[in-house]
Each structure stands twice: as C-alpha cells, then as structure tokens.
Design a protein around this nucleic acid. Structure first.
Lengths: 222, 222, 222, 222
DNA sequence: TATGAATGAGGCTTCATTCAT
DNA sequence: CATGAATGAAGCCTCATTCAT
C-alpha cells in the first residue's frame, strides 16, 4: 500500500444490477473472512477475489485499488454502527438521562462485542489507511445524535451540553474499546460494564445537574 | 503478521560492546523517525538501516526480523511508560484518593501527549503484531502498581478494590487514548482532562466510599 | 534445502491456456540451460526467468518456490527416462535374457550419455532436495518393468526373480552412473559398456540358470 | 559460493601447534555435524564456527573460504577411504582373486555403510564444488592399488588387467553407491552384497581366466 | 463484462567475508 | 592470534495491478 500520490478511495462504480450487488457483497464478506483469520496480515486482493469466487479482474471493476476496498469496508461498518447509535438516540428522546446513558453504553458495548474478531480485524485493517476523514465524519454524526438526545433529557438541564457530551462520548467509547482490547473475561467485562454506567451517572450528579431520581415532578417548568 | 510458525520476536543478540549498544539505539531512533513520518506504512528494514547509518546486515545482527524490531520498540516504550506509572504510584503512597487520581491521570495524559506522533505511530505499528503477551505483561504491572497505591489511600477504604481499580484504570487509559485519537484541539483536550478527573472522583463518591471533599474545612489540621 | 516446515514442492497451478504451457516450457528450458553452464551453483530464479523471457512473477505463478522448479524438472526427466525403460522392457518381452540385458544396458547407457551435461546437472541440482519420494516412485516403476521383462525370458527361468532383478538393476544403473562420473573417454567407456554386459551375462550363468548359449540345439522342449 | 575467479582451495595455514590442530578438528567435526542434520543446506561458516566453539575469525585463519573448508573435509574423507582400500589391497597380496574381490567389496561396502549420514552429507556437500581433480587423484590411487593387488593374484593371470580392473572397480563402487542411495533395508542390502560378489566372480570366470576354486590343493607348484 | 496470465518494483533476509580491537 | 561487529551484494519471493482475450 504505497501512499504517495494517494489514489482515489471511492468505489469505481456503483453496482446497479442485483448481480453486481451480490458480487460486491461477496467481496466484502470474503475480505472480512480473511481479515478475521489468523494470518490476517496476508490479506491480498488475489485471495479476496478467490474466496469471493470472482476473478481478480472483477474485483478491480468495483474497487480501484486495495485501499478503496478496505476503506469501503470500514465505511460500511461505521455507517451501520452510527445508524445503530442514532436509532438508540432517537428511541431515547425524552427519557431520563440515566436511561439514555444505559441505552448508549449498552448499544455501543454490544456492537463491539457481538463479532469481536470483526471489530478487531477492522481496527487492524485501517492501520495504514488515512481514515481520519471517515472517523471525523462519523464522530460528528454520533456527536449530533447524542447531543440531541441528551438535550431532550426529561430530568436534566445541561448547562454545558457540548462539554458534557464530549466527555461522556469519549469516556464511553474509549473505555469500551480499552476493555475490549484487554481481553477481559465475561465476568470482568460484565462488572466493568456496570461500573461504567455507574461512573457516568455519578458524573452527571457531580457536575451539579440535578437528576430527578423521583422523575419529573419536582421541576418540570422547562 | 502473526502467522503459523511464528518467528521468534526476541532480539538476536545482546550488544556486548559499547559500539554495539550505540548501533541498537541508532536503529531504534531511525525506526521511530520513519514511523512518525507520513507514509509510515513504508517502514522497511532497508530504510531503517539506511537512516540509522548502519548496513542492513547489522540490523539483522540484532533483530531476527522486522517484527522483532517493532516488537522491541514497543516493549521499550511500554517499559518506560510502565515505569513512569509505577513511579507515580509510589510517590502517591498514603495520599488522598483524589490526589492519586489526579496524579495518575496527569501522568498518563502527559505520557501520551508529549510525543503524540510517536504514540500514534506505535499504535499503528503494532497493528499486525501479536503483542497480546506484551500488553498483558504491562497491564499486570500497572494494575499491581495502581492497586497498591489505591489500597494505601489515606481517606478511602475500598470494599472491592480489584473491581474499582480495574474500572478506573480501564476508563482512564481508554479515555485518554480515545481523546488522543479524536485529534481534539488543546482547549477541548484540557477541558476533557478536567472532566475525566471529575468523573473519576464522582465515581469514588458514588460507590459509597467516603472521600473527604471538605478536605481541610471539616478538620483542617491536615 | 529440505528443512523443518518443508514448503510444498507441487506446482502452483496447471497451465490452462496454450500461452501458459509455452511459458512453463520456456522456464524448464531456461533452467536446464543455466544448470548445464559452468557456475551452475548460480542458478537463481531471477536468472531463470530472465533467460526464459518471462518476468519473475510469472515464474512464481507456476512454481511456489525454487525447489519446486528443480523438483519438477527432475520429475520430468525421470518420467521420460522411466518411460524409455518401460518401452524397452515391453519390446523385449519373450526375448532371450541376453538380449534383454543388452537392451536394458544400452537404453540406460544411451539415456545417460546423449546429453551428459544435462544428466550431470540434474544430479547436482537435486543435491539438497528431498527427492527420496521421487526416486522411490520411479525405482518401483522400473523394477516392475524389468521384473516383468525378465519373467518373460524365453530361455531362463528365474528361481529368485526379485533378488536377481534387484541385483541386475542396481549393478547396471550404479555402474553406468559411476562410469559417467569418472569421466571416461569414449574408448574406455565403450569397453566398459561391453564388459558390463559380459558380467551380467556371466552372473546369470553363474546363478545356475540355464542360458541356452547354443540357441535351440540342445533340445528346447523346455 | 560464487565461482567466477575461483579462489584458492588450499588451507590457509598448516596447523603447527597442537592447539591449532584441535581447532581444525573441531571445525571439521562441527561441519560434519551440521552437514548430517536435516537442514544441511543451511551450512554456514558462522554456524560452523559457533558449533566448533571458535570465532568466525578463527575459522578464516585456517580456511581461506567456505569452499576450501568443504574441499578439505572431502579430501580428508577420501584420504581415509583410499588408505583403507590400499591397506586392504596390500593385505590381499598373493591371495586368490576370489578373496581379493570379497575383501575389496567388503571394505568399500563397510566404509559407505558405517556412517551413512556422513557419506550422504559429503556427497551433497560437493554438489557445487569443482572436485574433479580430487576425485581423479584418488581414483588413480585406488586404481593403482587394486591393479597391483589383482596382478598378484595367486590363481589368475589377467590377460587385460587394465580393462578388468577398471570394470571391477567401476561396477563395485557404482553398485555400492547405488544400493546405498536406494535406501535398501538391511536384508536386501545383505543379499545384494552377496550377489555382487557372485557376479564379480562369475565375471572373472567368464572372461576365461581360470580361478582355482579348489584353492592350492590341486597343484601348488605355482 | 469477466477472466486470469503476466508484470516487476521492491520487500525481507542471508551469509561469506573483512578488519579494528 | 582470537574476536565478533559490521558489511552489502544478492537471493528469494510477494502482491497490487494491468490488459489482451
């Protein structure tokens, strides 16, 4: 993957026919399979094509180069992840902050945990890819979604929403990833999961925002 | 790069003469330089040797293969980081939990921030290296150090030290890394740094351990 | 080159298109040419590809490594040699033992002599190759062929065919190779050729089998 | 082992002191050990020196280059083998031809069989060495020895001693080597050994020389 | 559009050999 | 004399990519 004169990362053509879409899917699937096998560093376009059951020429019909393939794969993953988070955020509109935290943590934790090898593989795959733009794009979408969610909390009024949101999002996502990389066993992971929620709640209490444990009755004039 | 028939990652020979030690240092330095340049995926043994001002053969006298070089570099970094943390922990013996948290976060944050490109480069460099063992070794040393520190806190008695320690360590390290990867500007970073400390303190309060918030006011003669 | 974790010696892909077959032939031919030049120890994949007029990548499309190339070349040679011997054996069915011996010796002698540099080169090329299996396979085919031939001899009935066959085959092939390696001049070689035949005939007489030197005159109803 | 401008093959200096002789012996022994291990193709001067317990510099004090080492090793082996054969020949002076044949075959067979891996290894080691001269030198010595022996046979008068001698020597040495390479089991080898002797005897009979099977009893006036 | 044979720059690594200490 | 750090030419092989069919 030589980087000077970085080539286009956008797919070469959009699959218009069903057949083409199936091909692209097969290629993605093959890539993931190879990526999640030991020896993933051996990911080669030839092997991807082989496993996808298409010729190498066909692969290059859909992706102008290897980086574009990896980029597209990560994009796909990030889109799905982001959409999950957005869905969670929408579903929590108007809920209590505590519920929001719980839902956010659960969603992210589960997303990272359900196919751990895939997560790990994707982390590795982007090592030498300039995916800053990708990351940023999706970070913004996530920030927007969580910000909107928290601003609708039924029981809290955030004085400095931006700061709190950044803190929570950074802590949650960072902690989950770290937990993930430490290879904790299920038991430890579960307990950590719980403690993370506790910590985030404690944070909200601490920053002086009143959480109406009792529900909305005490204030509500907002 | 971990594949069946994993080649040895241990250095080939220990430098015995002073000359040899200088050589190894030059190789490490050259590796870091190449790693922190854009196009880091182009790290090649040839270029490392070139930049280190030694022949390629000399490089291979000390490292049996490219992976071993990267591995050794990471080990070196982790050793230094771990030792810093251990020093911090020892220095905080008997202090208040709040001071401990502050010291721990500061130490780690600074370690990651002072040569950010190096940090970033090392993260990337290990992408396809089986460094699980390395990580685990140092995670244990760090856990031991922080556990010892927290257990000596002057103002708190942890009912479940292991769990609390794991939580704090995972949250702090994960958050710092994530903050770091998001490429926050200095201002955001500073605020996040503060909020992280706040959150950890709040966590300690929340789990029911009594922290003397009042510090001096309740008694004052401390 | 046989080492632990022996790499595959089987060709990588079968040529499907005519173009590909020509390529493989060119590679074989180039290998032989390089092998038969003085300095044969300098056989390198790069030079083979160069002389064959193909790129080094193409060579590796068909042979997974250098050993596989040498192995395939030897296999090819042994197949040809074995087939020649089998043909000779078939042609001698029902002949007299003496004729059989003559035909066998002549065939082998000629096969070794007609392109002596090739023979010599192949002997050298396999020096560090685990070709035991190859040798064994062809030794068995040859044994089978000669055994069948001798068992059909018109004038002899072998009491212990297996032993006699092994002896004759080992002596003939060993002697020819040795004669060959001694670098005898034509004259010496010719005389040795004759003496070898004589010796084998004498052996048959000696082991008590009746050879009808006189042809049919003695009776022949046996 | 690059061959152009073939460097000197003669040892650099003769060991004069006992210490030096021990060093050379250690180097030879180490070479044989490495040569007889699987992976013998990996014979390197560094490894030889290591195993011999001397520095690489010391090795080069005694051998100007790697080829010279291998050459010297083979020379040593051939000298020993030749001397064994010469001794046998001297011991058989005046004996019957049959006894001579038996002694010669036995000697050679045993020499090849007693350390088969060494034999095999040496065969391999010379693959890319121009040892023609070596071979020739020792072939001549052996020829001289066997010729002298046969000419002293008590019971035979060779009309064409040179031809007979060449034939016998070529057949015997070639057959033994071939038997050796076929990897025969002990049983087969033993029988072949016997048959080879038989064949050589039959040859002598056949070429019209009278062998006094009865030994001296029939006349003794010779 | 699909195929797969061909390409070749360039990566990793070895190892015979030298020479300053 | 011995040592062993350093050398660097050169070998093997991979793999992203192209293009004729």
């Amino acid at each position: 993957m030589p980087s000077p004169a970085r080539p286009s990362l956008t797919p070469r053509k959009q699959p218009r026919q069903a057949r083409a879409e199936a091909t692209v899917d097969a290629i993605f699937e093959a890539t993931i399979q190879l990526l999640t096998r030991p020896g993933a560093e051996n990911l080669t376009t030839t092997r991807v094509a082989e496993r996808a059951g298409v010729s190498i020429g066909t692969l290059y019909q859909y992706f102008p180069n290897k980086q574009a393939l990896i980029y597209a794969l990560n994009e796909r993953y990030l889109v799905a992840l982001t959409e999950k988070i957005e869905a969670t955020c929408r579903a929590q509109e108007g809920e209590s902050a505590k519920n929001m935290l719980k839902a956010l943590i659960d969603t992210y934790w589960q997303a990272k945990t359900e196919r751990p090898e895939v997560t790990r593989a994707l982390y590795r795959s982007v090592a030498d890819l300039d995916n800053t733009a990708l990351i940023e794009t999706f970070a913004q979408r996530v920030d927007a979604a969580t910000t909107a969610m928290f601003s609708s909390a039924s029981d809290v009024d955030f004085a400095n929403l931006a700061e709190v949101n950044l803190t929570l999002v950074t802590v949650i996502f960072g902690t989950v990833r770290n937990a993930f990389e430490r290879g904790l066993d299920t038991d430890e992971a579960d307990r950590l999961h719980g403690q993370l929620l506790l910590m985030c709640e404690a944070y909200l209490v601490c920053i002086g925002e009143r959480i109406n444990h009792a529900g909305g009755q005490s204030g509500g004039q907002d």
